[in-house]
């Protein structure tokens, strides 16, 4: 639904980074490089961002 506030595994803050990630991926940048830029080093946090699907827009209509 909405991006979780924190990483499920380590508790790192991720909710402030997803918007930038999504925007830059759309522009065609390399996702791995964006995650490096955002300071997400561990694979737990990286997974949170990569695998997130934003469906809140679809649910909001109802």
């Amino acid at each position: 639904m909405e991006i979780p506030i924190r990483c499920f595994t380590c508790g790192n803050l991720i909710a402030d980074k997803f918007e930038e990630f999504a925007k830059r991926v759309k522009k065609g940048e390399d996702p791995g490089k964006i995650l490096d830029d955002l300071g997400l080093k561990r694979y737990c946090c990286r997974t949170m961002i990569i695998t997130h699907i934003e469906i809140i827009g679809e649910i909001s209509r109802f």
């Binding site: 909405e2 909710a15 402030d16 809140i56 827009g57 909001s60």
Partner: peptide, 12 residues
């Protein structure tokens, strides 16, 4: 909040 950009919720 440590960052002002944390997405809490989206409203339509």
């Amino acid at each position: 909040p440590v960052s002002p950009d944390i997405v809490i919720i989206r409203l339509v």
